[in-house]
Nucleic acid binder design. Structure first.
Lengths: 342, 342
DNA sequence: CTGAAAGCGCTTACAG
DNA sequence: CTGAAAGCGCTTACAG
């Protein structure tokens, strides 16, 4: 039915091997022969059978991506959607396909990638750093299978692409200070995540350098309800707080909810900024100022790095760290007494 | 390196064919033999090589899903993320993998699926109805390749899963009437989408049955800015409007923006309801009342239908239409003069 | 530069 | 119920 390499070979009066060589751009084919076959391929719109190719070449021409799926979030978190989209573009640009998988828990991630590897469904993997236990990282590493994590992991043999969490937190904290804030609370995720620790470090560094106490740090799980409650606690405990730095976009919704319920106006009564931007931050009133993680860049870079690994390269640096960018909107009030409009 | 069917055959003292039969659950293997091989498979954690299997069986064991990616939206639209997640779960449950693809335009969709088909990367396809030109539908149909669209298409030979757009719009319009609204505006997407037309029909039916004018219908593209402007126009044109029914969750943001800028309070000054729910509708103040499309159901059903087709079934009905559900929250005020609290 | 041939790891009629 | 064999459509040393 479908046209095969054998048909091409017959039509071009060459062997299947030669056709195969031009398909794969291998060297050692006469220019004239190559042209002739190339023309045939185009005219007939020939596409190689991916299974046959995979079997013979021991490759699948797929890249696997496993995305956490916990409760309501996962893909709906905009971060992962953007990442998936960015990775997919790179993958397709190289003639690969993206194999998509979700995982509800760490064990699911493990079983996901195990079958993917064993069945040779993918030549490489991109995975979120968070949901990945150290044992699993070690296991993957010993299998010598190309993969990169998005976000740094505790295991420093792992290739990763990350955002400059420390720098981003520093940037934003400096911005808050510039705006005249002194009583700043950091609302952040569970301490076990490395990036949470890094954001705390960035925040603390700048606060301490300014001679301020960096101790208003609150942890909470990534749930709107929890963030709301935590915000209320925080504001009760430190009513003098003038700004909350929510170090994850999902926490922002909780802060907004809490402010609404407490009849606190943003930014008049309380400023709010975020680490990690979100498309709907422009819709809220006021629009939310945020550190953008430039997720597209992250995804693109992760894919590029993965393809290097797939092609056998051994990059010297394990990690690639991308800089962040502050998107100033209107959720942070200027508290400078001396501020005067120009 | 990896263990193959040949190894299993040797270990079990049978032929490769027999092993293959038990892997695939084919009949005609002795109970004892089957058990022995099954045990071996489990003990060795054997997984069949997917490329080899695909080549021999002329299947890929992949389901492809192509998702529109226009501007900022696509996956971030929560609708598609939820759909992708739901489909993926079904796909994985059947031992298949999900091949994910995005498309920026109709032509991209076409080239996407063409290579997927030609290369035999997938055994079936799930696609959004919108982004699919009639020529492409016809082309896919003539190739006799299993696919189902999410949403009805103009071509009635196409298998699809859809939501009861007319019924959902009817439900919500009735709810608005119940709440005492009479001056209701429908803000909806471009008229060329069949589901837009259906929602308009549902709205109009109920309005007319109540003796009301169903003519406050406004169309706008799915962009926040556009929806905002349209809302302003609408309110200028019909200042007596007491409720806006936004027939797509993305339009809701625009309405909210407009209300904020015009200092109009929701729901005190204006009620707002939506067709299509969104996770963040619970975060806004007030929480937004919406028709839920039960996207998980849609995704699950689409996958189930697709697998029927992949397995050669020829379902009699082309379409499966799922009912919607109203999620009442707080964005719609009760305007009944005679309303009294109990 | 090109061809012939083996082989990738499965499935599937066909015999028995 | 089971085996032997052909074949799926490619790739890739190996010769020449």
């Amino acid at each position: 039915m479908a046209i095969t390499i054998k048909d091409l070979a017959k039509l071009a009066n060459v062997s299947k091997g030669t056709v195969s060589r031009v398909i794969n751009g291998s060297s050692g084919v006469g220019a004239e022969t190559r042209q002739r076959i190339l023309k045939l391929i185009k005219d007939l719109d020939y596409q190689p059978n991916i299974s046959a190719r995979g079997l013979a070449a021991k490759r699948s021409y797929n890249i696997g991506m496993i995305i956490p799926h916990t409760g309501n979030y996962s893909l709906s978190s905009s971060y992962w959607s953007a990442l998936l989209t960015a990775v997919n573009e790179q993958v397709m640009a190289r003639g690969y396909n993206l194999l998509f998988s979700t995982a509800r828990a760490q064990d699911d991630v493990a079983s996901s990638y195990r079958t993917i590897l064993k069945r040779r469904c993918a030549d490489g993997l991109i995975i979120g750093a968070d949901q990945f236990g150290e044992e699993h990282l070690a296991e993957l590493l010993t299998m010598d299978f190309p993969f990169v994590t998005v976000g740094k992991t505790p295991n420093n043999s792992v290739y990763y692409v990350d955002v400059d969490n420390r720098g981003g937190a520093r940037q934003m904290t400096e911005y808050l200070l510039d705006q005249g804030h002194r009583k700043i609370a950091l609302l952040t995720g569970p301490l076990e995540y490395p990036y949470v620790q890094e954001r705390i470090q960035g925040f603390s560094q700048v606060m301490m350098a300014a001679g301020l106490s960096p101790h208003q740090i609150f942890h909470c799980p990534y749930q709107i309800q929890a963030a709301k409650e935590k915000t209320k606690d925080l504001l009760k405990l430190f009513p003098e707080t003038t700004a909350i730095f929510a170090a994850c976009s999902e926490l922002v919704w909780g802060v907004i909810k809490a402010a609404q319920e407490m009849k606190i106006k943003i930014p008049d009564d309380l400023s709010l900024v975020s680490f990690d931007d979100h498309p709907l931050f422009e819709v809220f009133s006021p629009e939310i100022t945020a550190v953008s993680q430039r997720i597209n860049e992250v995804g693109r870079t992760a894919a590029e790095r993965l393809f290097e690994l797939v092609e056998g390269a051994v990059p010297a640096q394990k990690g690639i760290v991308l800089s962040t960018e502050i998107i100033v909107r209107r959720s942070c009030a200027n508290r400078c007494k001396s501020s005067h409009p120009h």
